[in-house]
Each structure stands twice: as C-alpha cells, then as structure tokens.
Design a protein around this nucleic acid. Structure first.
Length: 596
RNA sequence: GACCCCGUAGCUCAGCAGGAUAGAGCGCAGGAUUCCUAAUCCUGAGGCCGCGCGUUCGAAUCGCGCCGGGGUCACCA
C-alpha cells in the first residue's frame, strides 16, 4: 500500500484497492490524533461504499467505534477526522453524517487511477495477499468410489473448486484434495458386485441381489476382468479373487469419477487413499497410540440417544475419543464391535496426516448429511494439533432437483439416480456451476432443469456472459466504424481517462473498484457466492450504461466523431471485460466472446 | 430428546466480525429499439426482516426462549 501511496504525484498513477487505502489513511489519522486509541477498535473499522450513493463514495464508522473507549463524543472524533481529510488531495468533500459516519466524496482522478490499475494488473487485478502465503488444504467431493457421481455431489464439487480458486487468488497456497474412502465394507460390496458382472461377462446369467450395486456402470468393468483373467477368477475361491477385483474396480470407479469431475472442469492435486492409513504401522495405528499417550482415549460406555433408541443398541464398553474436551457433544468411538477401526478413527489419522504435511488451515466441504459430523472433526483437528491448526467445515445443503416445478428423484437406492454427467449434459457446465454458486452453500436450494436450461433473464449466468460478450461487440463495432482508430491495449493504456467524467462513467468505474475488496472478503469468509453476486451487479451496471447511450449520444461507447472519448470509453469497456473474466474464471465459468 | 442449517416482497434469494430510508431477479402494471445483440434498459406497486425478551448510541444482523421447515443422531461411509 505504501508503494502505491508513494506514487501519489506521478502522472500515471494506479491504485488497486481504494477502500483498503482509505482504511489505512483513516487508521493512521486516528493514531496521530489519538495516540492512545486501541488496536482492537481500529481493527473493527470499516470503509465501504454507503448503501445510499447520495451519501458519497466512501463511508466509515471509525469515529463511532473509537469514541467510546476514548471517552469522547463520536461527532467530536468525526469532526477531527474531517478536518484532517480536508487536506487530502484525493478527497473532494468530506462530512459528518448521522450518528457519526464520515462520508467521503473522492476527487475524480483517484477513480481514474483505480481504472488504470485494472489494465495494468490484468488477470491479477483483485489478487491479494490476505492469505499471506499460508498453506491451506481444501478437501472436497470425496465421494465414495462405488459408482459415478450423482447430482448430490455436484454442489460440493463446484463449491470446493471455486473456493480453492478464490483462496489461491487471495494469497493462500492451496492444495485441492480428494479423500478416497476405499477401506470400508462398501468397497467389498463393490468388489462382489463387480465379480457378478464378471461372471455375467463370461456368459452366466446372473441376478443382482439386493444390497449389491446394480448399476450398469459395472458391466464394462466385469467385461474387462473377463478379458484380463479369462476363467481364472471364476475358478478361484472368492477370498482370493476379491482383492484382485477390488483393485481393478476401484481404479475403474476413480477413473469414472475423475471423468465426471472433468466435465465440470474440476481437478484435484491430491487423491488421498484411506487404505494407506490402515495396516500395521499405518497412520491410524500411530495416531491412536499418540492419542493414548496424550490421554485423549479411554474405555467407557455411551448412553443411547434419547428419543430415538436404535433398534439394536448394544450397551458395551468401547474405545472412546475424548471429543467432549474439544467441544463435541459426546465422546466418539474409535473401534467397532468387530475390532476394526471406525471411520472416524481413520479420519482423525487422516487429518493428523494433513497437519503433519504442513497444513495449519484446512477446509472440508461436506454434504448436508454430514452436518452431525462437524463438531467431531473440529474436535479432532483441535486435538491432533494442540489447537494450532484450524478447520472450517463447509456444509453444502441439499439440492432439490426439479423439472417444471415437479420434484425429481435422485436417491441411490431407487434405481433412477440422476448423475452429475446427466445434469452437465442437459444444462451445460457453465449454467450448473453458476447456478450452484449463486446461492449460499448453507441454504437448501431448488435446481430446476427447465429454468437453468432456458437462456433467459431467469438465468443469471447468461446475463453475466452476455455482458462479457457485449464488450467484444463494442470492439467489433469500433473496428467497423472507426477503422483508423488504434484500439490496441497499448493505445488504450495511453487513453485520456479524464474524458470519463460523467456520472455514468464514474458509477461504472466505482463498480470496478469494488472488485478487490469483494474478492478478498469472499476468500476470507470462504463464500464464493459473493463473487457470483458481484459479477451480476457489475453486469447490470454495464448493461445500464449501454442503455444510457440510447438516450444520450454522448454516453455511447463508440463516438465516430470523437476518437479521444471513444478511446477512453474503450479503456473502460476493456476494464469491465477484464474484471468479468477474472471473476468468471474464479467460478470456473467460461467467458464467451459471443452468445449464439 | 440432542445437535446443525434455514425462516427477509406473491415466488426464488442477497444483505448478517451491528450502522444511515432493508435490496435484486422472477411474477404483476406500464414504458424504451432510425443507432454498438431488446439474451438489454427504464418507471411503478409490493415488507410487523417468523414471534417475544434482552445487550447498546443503534439490531434483519449479536444473546436467550419459543414457533415453523430441512438435515443428522454408537458400532455406516
């Protein structure tokens, strides 16, 4: 920031985050005026655009926050700040309003400097260091490798992917990770189901018993086994054949899942196998020993849950993790009655593994059916890191699939599951992604095929993409009408931005200037939907500007008789395009040059 | 019985590390194109922010208690 400050009087000044700069100036001023002001109060200061544009460009609550601890009157503090900022060349007007807000109207050149920085930083405009280079592990999808992905997984997949991009853009060193649950009994079921398909491929007529996976997707796996092994597997005892089948079935399922994810342009850095945690000397064993040494494990009994008594409740002594010491509601079993480790035991080991790999920040994206698991995970991470690591578990609520208002079944038990691939094929990756990200992750949502497919105003993705396409059509128009005009990036960089002086111009520039603070706040709050909403608003501002050209020729982007103005407007259009591209790319949505 | 999410315009949802007169889209009523894509724009109507109490200069936002909807609840993953 001081770097940018230092350039205050150079002719080609650029400023990326106006709001951050003024927050710093306000803080500095307060420290100078009131040396005893507390850091705590300063940290809560917000500089943001006021809701009502009539109040100015920027507004801060600084005086109201600081006054009380200083034993002063908010208006008195505000007036002192106002006095201070009258000397600031970037401030055109500053005043106290309401209970002690300070409203700034900024001098036009600072907005032009903000606009210039969009082109200067290009794809990096909005990039920040809020993550300070810290490593974060974002675990998402982690669907069981027993079949293709269904729609239920899609939301978490898209959310996790966008969040990872967002955090990477905001200065975190991000690892995208997928935890393969390949150690449980369902994998045995998968192997048995595949074995049936293998026998089928050899000509047997088979029936899939209930409790097995009936899906057609195992047929090719069975065929491949027949090709590889011929009759050999059939001749073996099942116990011998199953491990061979298991490995191949698993590999096939993961290929399937990776292919599904690729349809949404989702790629992980690490696929972490649960199986590698098990076995003698494995992480689970090591972790349990460690937990025992720490006194975090004991033998004890659990009360059955009230209200809902499980049918086969067996009151027995078991190995428990002291989760309650770390904020959970009850202590959690680590060993099943058959002597195997619980899923949770392996998960503790897995998260300790993450921690030992150097991740002090972890994000897990889970489905709504795991909401009861959150406290347990938090407790585990707290325990294994002695409070040094933090985990944020983001729950993606249910997506109700609809078609013209009619609910769609998507249960895995009933045969008619809707797969992720079906959805992407039907509505396209862009629409799926944007629609899912245009909603907070923790609110349940309806996803109506008919609406999402329709390229209409109901569908925000097309609205935003259309804005992007419009930036191209403007440049096409210029090439046609003003062939002599050099509209290259180099020429735009030299444009006389002072020509962008109308309220409409400044309004659009202010919208662009918001991007850095929006993206930074979205990253630190782990809320990608803020990006989607911002893009919608930016698109609206741009469409609105466009329409003003219909009323007022002076507000058109292309003015054949004023090449200087046209050039400045093109610089503005290029900046809008840049921000749309930056935002859409974080969301994993394409930015087409035209909509067909 | 316990825990987690949600409750804001007719509908779908933003806004919630407290801030000024609570927003958008759809729908409804009306308007805009000799001109860069009308896949757009403009205007209007429409609100006890589920209810109550509390915290304070100030609450849709924070706390407690209700009500309603969804999810979950040893040894599945």
């Amino acid at each position: 920031m001081s770097q940018e400050e230092g350039r205050a009087h150079r002719p080609k000044r650029t400023i990326m985050n106006v709001f951050a700069i003024f927050a710093a100036r306000v803080t500095d001023a307060l420290v100078r005026l009131y040396p005893s002001v507390s850091q705590e109060a300063l940290a809560r200061i917000v500089v943001e655009p006021p809701r009502d544009a009539g109040h100015g460009d920027l507004s801060t609550n600084a005086a109201m926050l600081v006054a009380r601890p200083l034993g002063r009157n908010p208006r008195e503090v505000a007036l002192a700040l106002v006095e201070h900022f009258r000397a600031d060349a970037d401030v055109a007007a500053v005043e106290v309003a309401g209970p002690g807000f300070i409203n700034f109207r900024l001098a036009t050149p600072i907005w032009h400097a903000a606009l210039r920085s969009v082109a200067e930083r290009g794809g990096d405009y909005g990039r920040s260091d809020v993550g300070r280079g810290e490593r974060v592990n974002v675990e998402y999808v982690s669907a069981n490798p027993t079949g293709p992905m269904h729609v239920g997984h899609t939301r978490g997949a898209v959310f996790g992917d966008a969040l990872a991009s967002l955090m990477a853009f905001s200065g975190y060193e991000v690892t995208r990770e997928y935890y393969i649950n390949d150690a449980g009994s369902q994998i045995d079921t998968l192997a048995r189901s595949t074995l049936l398909r293998y026998r089928e491929a050899l000509g047997e007529s088979i029936e899939i018993p209930s409790g097995f996976y009936p899906g057609d997707y195992l047929i090719p796996v069975g065929r491949a086994l027949a090709g590889e092994f011929g009759e050999t597997l059939r001749a073996m005892p099942e116990a011998e054949a199953l491990p061979l089948v298991k490995d191949r079935a698993l590999a096939a399922m993961m290929d399937l899942i990776r292919a599904d994810l690729a349809k949404l342009n989702i790629h992980h850095d690490v696929f972490f196998s649960e199986r590698q945690l098990h076995g003698p000397g494995g992480d689970v064993e090591l972790t349990l020993n460690w937990l025992r040494e720490q006194g975090m494990v004991y033998q004890g009994r659990l009360e059955p849950p009230k209200g809902k008594t499980p049918d086969e409740w067996e009151d027995r002594e078991q190995t428990l993790f002291r989760a309650t010491q770390y904020g959970d509601d009850i202590d959690r079993p680590l060993v099943k009655s058959n002597g195997q480790y619980t899923y949770f035991a392996a998960d503790i080991a897995y998260h300790r593994n993450k921690y030992l790999r150097g991740f002090n920040h972890m994000v897990n994206v889970l489905g709504a059916d795991h909401s009861g698991y959150v406290k347990r995970l938090e407790a585990a991470v707290n325990a294994i890191s002695h409070g040094e690591a933090e985990i944020d578990v983001r729950i993606c609520q249910l997506v109700r699939l609809m078609k013209n208002g009619e609910p769609f079944k998507m249960s895995k038990r009933s045969g008619d599951l809707v797969t992720l691939a079906d959805v992407v094929e039907e509505v396209g990756s862009d629409a799926v992604r944007f629609m899912l990200l245009y909603r907070r992750n923790d609110a349940a949502m309806d996803f109506d095929f008919a609406v999402v497919k329709e390229q209409s105003r109901d569908n925000p993705v097309f609205y935003v993409q259309y804005a992007h396409a419009r930036t191209y059509s403007i440049f096409r128009k210029v090439a046609e009408e003003m062939p002599a005009l050099d509209a290259s990036a180099a020429a735009l960089a030299e444009a006389d931005l002072s020509r962008l002086a109308s309220e409409a111009d400044l309004e659009l520039i202010r919208a662009l200037a918001q991007w850095p603070r929006i993206v930074a706040s979205a990253a630190s709050a782990h809320e990608p939907h803020r990006v989607a909403f911002y893009l919608y608003e930016l698109a609206a501002a741009f469409h609105g500007f466009w329409a003003k050209g219909n009323q007022d020729v002076a507000l058109r982007f292309v003015n054949a008789d004023d090449s200087k103005l046209t050039l400045a407007r093109l610089a503005l259009v290029a900046a809008v395009r840049q921000v749309l591209v930056n935002g859409l790319s974080l969301l994993g949505v394409s930015a087409p040059e035209e909509l067909s």
